[in-house]
């Protein structure tokens, strides 16, 4: 457990010193929200689509975060160094996952704030509880898929375009689930709260499955070539 936190802290410290999330990813995600608003150009449509747009922007931004999380490792063979220390590969995975989850939580909170300001969605008390639960479970799912597929393409040439191609079909169910649950939490009321909670259960299963798969396959993915 200490190793997990050490890896996560290392990633977050590197991230904090570079402030890439702050200066590049967050502005990008907000820009996506603004561009959607301009492209759709209809208040009613925006309010209905708000939840889906938030998660779409979050997915695009998450892929940037994941890419970054592996680029700092592969730059000077840092990942090899990390693996030569006696840390279990699965713990390295959990550490990186934790760091990505932390960054994505900040990102999604900003995005939801953006939706409230730009799209005029309202959240009441009951909705807020559902919203927080949805954000946490969906972010864990998003981060686990990202960390797993990020490891698959790490150190390969052309990984920038490969990661979206591989991760997006897998993320489709998560995108649907998170959008529906968030729709229920937002004021629009096209979906009732109970259905929203059911979707959150699906998100939780998704997160558990991909976290388990990532922990199991991380050793194979990162071990040096024989």
């Amino acid at each position: 457990m200490r190793n997990v936190f050490a890896v996560a802290r290392k990633d977050l410290v590197v991230e904090w010193r570079a402030r890439l999330l702050l200066v590049r990813v967050l502005p990008f995600a907000l820009l996506v929200l603004v561009l959607f608003a301009v492209a759709l150009d209809s208040e009613a449509l925006l309010e209905r689509a708000a939840a889906g747009l938030v998660w779409l922007a979050a997915m695009f931004a998450a892929l940037l975060v994941v890419q970054r999380c592996y680029d700092i490792e592969t730059a000077d063979g840092a990942l090899d160094m990390l693996l030569t220390s006696v840390v279990e590969p699965s713990r390295v995975f959990f550490g990186k996952l934790l760091a990505v989850v932390g960054q994505l939580l900040v990102l999604v909170v900003v995005l939801v704030g953006g939706a409230v300001v730009l799209y005029g969605v309202r959240v009441d008390a009951a909705g807020l509880v559902l919203l927080v639960t949805t954000v946490v479970t969906a972010v864990i799912g998003l981060a686990s898929v990202g960390t797993l597929y990020g490891a698959v393409v790490a150190q390969l040439t052309g990984r920038d375009s490969l990661l979206p191609l591989l991760a997006m079909p897998v993320l489709a169910p998560l995108l649907i689930g998170a959008s529906r649950a968030t729709e229920a939490a937002f004021g629009s009321r096209t979906i009732d709260l109970a259905t929203g909670w059911a979707w959150t259960a699906l998100l939780a299963v998704f997160a558990v499955v991909f976290t388990a798969a990532g922990a199991a396959s991380f050793a194979t993915l990162t071990e040096p070539d024989a």
Binding site: I176, V205, F206, V209, A216, A219
Partner: peptide, 27 residues
């Protein structure tokens, strides 16, 4: 190598089953 793979496989299968059963009622 085999054990974690089996555990992961089981987890994924169970997960898909639950997802499938859940989704029948919804979409």
């Amino acid at each position: 190598r085999l054990l974690p793979a089996i555990i992961a496989g089981l987890a994924v299968v169970v997960g898909i089953g639950i997802v499938a059963i859940f989704l029948t009622s919804s979409i």
